[in-house]
């Protein structure tokens, strides 16, 4: 087999091992379960009664948006933090020291993050199917829509996560990345209709993938009559594909450039770090 294919295959296996690994430690399991559990409990207690003018509960109309949000969180936050940590602990350098290791590393990351996104969706969707009977799981095309929104969403968010993870070199930086991301989630109409937000905020939200992920998921799982709550009284499939597609293409063009620059610079910065440490020890 040729080296490239070998590396891709080794990368797929790497992703498999990493994904399996997320089930074998408390920290990762907690990350999977915590947010969905909180949201589901809140929705069950707060959102039981049908909303005025509809037959759907607050839980019914919120859960699809939460699914969209989960995809974005996994693609952005998880990938960003994993990249920063693995750069610091030497995983990336190990990949550099292995023939075609970088290719395998990134194939592995795509598998891991996609798998984590799928698992996160299932953790919300499966209980929701029993708790919230307003979700249109048997609507024609529901699963197809869900699938392409998921794929396009991952393609739009993962390169951004990879880029952010490369720009920040210290684990401490995660603290600076997460709050703006949470702010964006709050502005993206996941937990209330975006049409009730100020127009300027609507525009900001529409510039980023999170809103479109939520919209896409709502279009998949809610009755079409609910489109009236959305901007333009429509699911706006074309715009969804357009915005997510632009993010995906831009990310896929930019990410390799940034990653390559990072890989080159990395050696320089490790030098600096070592030299600084050496100087502090006074060993020069």
């Amino acid at each position: 087999m040729n080296p490239t294919m070998t590396a891709v295959e080794a990368g797929l296996r790497r992703g498999g091992v990493e994904l399996r690994g997320t089930f074998t430690n408390v920290q990762d399991l907690w990350n999977y379960v915590f947010m969905p559990a909180v949201i589901l409990v809140v929705m069950v207690f707060v959102g039981g009664d049908p909303l005025p003018g509809t037959e759907l509960s607050l839980g019914d109309v919120t859960i699809p948006g939460v699914l969209g949000m989960q995809v974005a969180v996994v693609g952005l936050v998880n990938l960003t933090t994993m990249r920063i940590i693995e750069r610091e602990d030497g995983t990336l350098l190990r990949a550099k020291a292995t023939p075609n290791g970088m290719l395998g590393y990134f194939v592995g990351k795509v598998v891991t993050v996609s798998g984590m996104a799928l698992i996160s969706l299932a953790i919300i969707l499966v209980p929701s199917a029993f708790l919230f009977d307003g979700l249109q799981l048997t609507k024609p095309g529901a699963w197809l829509t869900l699938a392409w929104v998921l794929l396009l969403g991952l393609a739009a968010t993962m390169p951004i996560g990879a880029i952010l993870g490369s720009l920040f070199s210290e684990a401490r930086a995660i603290g600076f990345i997460v709050p703006p991301m949470l702010g964006l989630i709050a502005a993206s109409g996941i937990f209330y209709p975006i049409t009730s937000a100020p127009v300027w905020l609507q525009w900001i939200a529409q510039a980023f993938p999170i809103y479109w992920l939520g919209l896409g998921m709502r279009s998949a799982l809610l009755p079409d009559s609910m489109a009236v709550v959305e901007i333009g009284d429509s699911w706006r499939y074309l715009e969804t594909v357009g915005v997510l597609g632009v993010w995906a293409v831009a990310g896929l063009i930019l990410a390799p450039i940034v990653l390559r620059r990072m890989a080159r610079r990395e050696s320089g910065s490790t030098v600096d770090a070592r030299r600084e440490k050496a100087m502090q020890r006074g060993t020069w």
């Binding site: 070998t6 080794a10 990493e18 430690n25 693995e86 602990d89 030497g90 995983t91 190990r94 023939p99």
Partner: peptide
């Protein structure tokens, strides 16, 4: 290298098997 802290969640055999694959070609 002097210090590695990577792949802490991997098992010894798993990691050697995975990294070895890249060398087969």
């Amino acid at each position: 290298l002097q210090s590695w802290r990577d792949h802490g969640k991997w098992k010894v055999r798993e990691l050697l098997d995975n990294l070895g694959r890249y060398y087969a070609p």
